[in-house]
Design a protein around this nucleic acid. Structure first.
Lengths: 196, 196
DNA sequence: CGAAAAACCTAACACTTGTTAGTTTTGCTT
DNA sequence: AAGCAAAACTAACAAGTGTTAGGTTTTTCG
């Protein structure tokens, strides 16, 4: 029977990854040491290796967990019977929500993937390229159906995605700008620039 | 008389910073070692210290060079007699151009500033906050003058800036998407979402 | 040329890195 | 209470970190 940890119904491995994520975000993957992570978990560095195989594995877990969530969601949207505009809105909202709910994981997957080692690095980049391609296809579909402004679909995808994933610096002013304001304002900005 | 280096009319210090920038971008500030930088310059690690004071100084130089360029430009735009919409377009175009011309420096200033040490870190963050505030003020001015859509100005600034600074991944597909296409498509996207 | 200055080199420092080995403690099941 | 496995510990490793000291070569310039 799998070992279940005290708090939060989470494995110790999950606790380690969670604490590591926070540190990777604050100091960067390279600058956050195993001893830092161990201290955050409340244990000696060597003890971490009872639960994980390497520092790299932590980064891999985080990056692919995020990638898989986005790909799964995209699959659902692609299959759905919504208008193109609605599809785009759904995707944008999903990205913003992910950013708000799982800020640290998303941040790491966005900024620290460079430190992945092969073959994980290539794998990750392939998945990302494919995701963007499929998003671009949706937009081109929308242009052809005359639902969207005529715009370079690749640039539009990049603009959209980076606009959303750059909300990092918003995080600390959560008090002055609520999540709802952020989401609705951003959707408004990003969608009304697309609508014909 | 100041020492002038062989190629490109640049000081050796500038060469070091240039090479370091490339490495900081590829591997991150923490993972790029002085010995890596030295090798790129074609010299031993210790010799670097004839031209710079520390690894930190390189990062500081890059971050504040970028910050100053943006602030200077903003000052000019603020003083000008353009419409608000035109002002925003000028700023957006400037950001995109900077991204294309000085990709490495901008990338580092955007992503590696976390590794600045005090008091430079606080200083940098203050400058950034002030820049965004002033950009937000322009937008609010535009809303009041009925030139722009009614939108949360802070969210708009963040959306705009992060959309632009996230073009990192575009860099390697320069062949398929020209700089002109990128700039015009992006301006179209970002401006027409603002125009009333 | 000859001297001063600038730039470079080798060697070393004190410290941190990820990780392994071997041992001891913890906590559950019989 | 005994036994067993999981998980913690201490100690150490080889390699890499930024940086300094001191000596040697190269460049500059009168």
């Amino acid at each position: 029977m799998p070992k279940i940890q005290s708090k939060k119904n989470s494995t110790k491995k999950e606790v380690i990854i969670e604490k590591a994520a926070k540190l990777f975000m604050e100091k960067g993957f390279g600058a956050a040491s195993m001893r830092d992570i161990a201290e955050a978990v409340g244990v000696e560095a060597a003890s971490l290796y009872n639960h994980i195989q390497s520092k790299s594995e932590i980064l891999q877990t985080i990056c692919f967990k995020v990638a898989n969530e986005f790909i799964s969601h995209l699959e659902v949207v692609e299959m759905s019977n919504e208008t193109i505009l609605k599809k785009m809105e759904i995707i944008i909202r999903f990205h913003i929500r992910m950013m708000l709910d799982q800020y640290e994981y998303i941040y790491i997957s966005d900024h620290e993937w460079r430190h992945l080692t092969e073959p994980y690095l290539s794998n990750f980049l392939n998945q990302r390229r494919s995701y963007r391609k499929r998003l671009g296809d949706i937009i081109e579909d929308g242009i052809q159906k005359n639902e969207l402004k005529k715009i370079d679909s690749y640039v539009a995808v990049l603009t959209m995605l980076s606009a959303i994933s750059g909300i990092e610096s918003w995080q600390r002013s959560r008090k002055t700008t609520s999540a709802e304001t952020l989401e609705s304002s951003m959707v408004k900005y990003l969608i009304e620039g697309l609508k014909k």
